[in-house]
Design a protein around this nucleic acid. Structure first.
Lengths: 126, 126
DNA sequence: TCAACTGTATATAATCAACATATACAGTTT
DNA sequence: AAACTGTATATGTTGATTATATACAGTTGA
């Protein structure tokens, strides 16, 4: 597994690590229950403090992407794809609800709302 | 016109001033072309620096709620309703964009998105 | 058993943006 | 001229964010 830190990126180091590992998990490059590099080894490789790698791992754990066994290591969590999907659906419903509320506040017609969502969907062809 | 500063609120002083004046304008308590209290007078009344009241007025001007004539004063701008509408439209676009991004992240089809927005619009009959 | 590994907890330091300010300036009004 | 208007520049304070070192405690395996 390869992690690259871009010092010019502006993004915090811990965030770059978090994102890249998350992507590896989502894409399947990291399999369920596979052990991640230890926070110390990864830190050594990247020439940064292991506190920073720990922070990245903490974020991943909080979001359910990995699980930790103290003194043993960190492992890729079983992906509940359906759960993630449902979480996203709730967020989407919430966003759409807010949008509709605002639309009501400024007297947008139903068709105007529809045309706005169509505009947002323009580049989206699935 | 009355402005109240709540030190316990956590909101910045300039923001409290901004919001309250904005509300006065929207509600019609402040009429088109009416002169606002000078940044110095308001600052004196509120016992704060006039730089802070200036910042509040700057925000109001940036958003088009007031206009300024140097050495004369600040005045309520015209066409506020249209401004508010535009503000809301921007927010709506933003919300829809976020929703579409999330939808893409969990592989929702275009038609699924449309049916979700239709669901949100169910109780909305304009 | 003990050396080498794992993650944890606490305290600290550097940096940066947000917030509020004073002071000096320039134009308008009366 | 005196008293007002807004402007521009520089400064100080604070708090959140980011990254760190050091000391701690459990697990593993030669």
């Amino acid at each position: 597994m390869t992690i690259l830190i871009d010092n010019k990126s502006g993004a915090p180091i811990y965030d770059q690590i978090y994102s890249q590992i998350k992507n590896h998990i989502i894409s399947g490059q990291l399999k369920e229950n596979e052990m991640l590099p230890s926070i110390r080894k990864l830190a050594k490789d990247l020439k940064i403090s292991f506190i920073t790698t720990k922070r990245a791992y903490d974020e991943l754990e909080n979001e359910g992407f990995i699980y930790t066994i103290p003194a043993k290591g960190c492992f890729v969590a079983a992906k509940n794809i359906e759960l993630i999907r449902e979480e996203n659906l709730k967020k989407i419903e919430d966003l759409l609800e807010q949008a509709v509320q605002l639309a009501a506040a400024c007297n947008l017609s139903k068709s105007e709302i529809i045309s706005m969502i169509n505009f947002s969907l323009e580049d989206y062809n699935k």
